[in-house]
Nucleic acid binder design. Structure first.
Lengths: 215, 215
DNA sequence: ATTTACACTAGGAAAAACTCCCGATAATTA
DNA sequence: TAATTATCGGGAGTTTTTCCTAGTGTAAAT
């Protein structure tokens, strides 16, 4: 194998344990080389520019800038970036949002090493990769009404919806996302309108029903 | 170091990635030896009997028999087993449950390698170990005991709490109960205060957790 | 029998949150 | 190029929430 076949990888996950785990799995295959790690969305974006990895393996739920926003930013700046989501969420809403944001693949952490390697090979070739039974799930849930409503939300709306459902107030969300709390308030209104709900109570219940948060 | 100083460890987590990560971290310290892995609660119980590890590092959320039940079973059969929970849940409810079931330590996956080693040392000595800012949280929530809190509510408060959690707004509740919506608003404030919550989101979740309403 | 305690009620004033409307800027699409 | 869409936020008004105060009734304690 020549050096040019090496696939340079960046790992993004707020859990050091998970980064170490993926690193370990990748070390067993000489085609892969981990060139960078990041523990937050902000760092990921920064590191990406410095290392320009071939593939970035990224988690979705991270404090601060979440994975979906990080994906959005990286793709905005580097449209050909190959981002593979490695999430613990079996939930299709997350997957759809991530793919919408520009990710090229979606795996859950339940998957085994072989699947990870498989996905990486696909991405390296420029293809997308989604867990088999997962893409089925997505197809099914597309028929589901409620979920459709959720998919109607833009990336930003979805993100704010999630944070609201988690219990963050407007000011906290504004700080997290670095936007005005006025903007968050306005988003909240449009989210409720799109979802056809009147109060935050229904919002939480909808979020729970869709597995975005736990009760 | 003599062989008897070796701390024999079993890893239990349904995510291969996480197991690999912990293993990698432990390999860097010669005092630790991973003697077994399990990917489910059932297997953990089985493997425990075969290997009798000094310490078991166990995740809580696993399909099938969850981590908490596994802890309970292992402790029931081997009361002196040293179980260290390594969870992604910052939620104190999980921690309390795990400790109640017999775990000797609780860490979140956000923790770094040093903390894991530290925790293992404590457990090896027969002590318990809980993440510092986490034990503070637990102490707080003990005072704040959800069930206690709910019973602290007066009849009227509880009634209004339920209606709010169902999604009724102040005016509707006022009509239903034949009181001023101003009164309902005031009740709402005192309810939140008594329950130690800041927004309606947490109110709904609390109501759901306590079976007052369904999601 | 009177004090004490607490639940229930609600108004006023101020603060906070929300809604609705508008305009600006990019980026994407037709 | 024109139209559309996502993001962002100000202005102004409305609604909700908070905090304070205060009256009533009931039940237990002194």
């Amino acid at each position: 194998m020549s050096a040019s076949d090496l696939i340079r990888i960046m790992l993004v996950d707020d859990h050091a344990v998970v980064r170490a785990g993926v690193r370990r799995l990748l070390e067993q295959d000489e085609r892969f080389l981990v060139v960078a790690e990041a523990e937050s969305g902000e760092r990921a974006y920064q590191q990406f520019g410095e290392h320009l990895p071939d593939i970035t393996i990224i988690d979705l739920s991270m404090p601060g800038m979440g994975g979906i926003e990080a994906i959005g930013r990286i793709i905005a700046r580097y449209p050909t970036a190959k981002l593979l989501v490695l999430s613990m969420h079996e939930n299709t809403a997350f997957a759809s949002q991530a793919l919408k944001a520009g990710a090229k693949g979606y795996l859950t952490k339940n998957g085994l090493a072989e699947e990870l390697v498989n996905a990486l090979e696909h991405l390296a070739k420029g293809e997308t990769y989604i867990n088999a039974n997962f893409s089925k799930k997505i197809a099914q849930q597309f028929l589901n009404n409620e979920n459709n409503a959720l998919q109607q939300l833009s990336t930003r709306e979805f993100e704010i919806f999630r944070l609201l459902a988690e219990g963050s107030d407007n000011n906290l969300i504004a700080t997290k996302l670095n936007i005005s709390s006025k903007t968050v308030a306005n988003y909240q209104t449009s989210i409720k309108q799109k979802l056809g709900i009147n109060n935050s109570v229904e919002m939480v219940r909808l979020a729970i029903r869709n597995g975005l948060i736990e009760s």
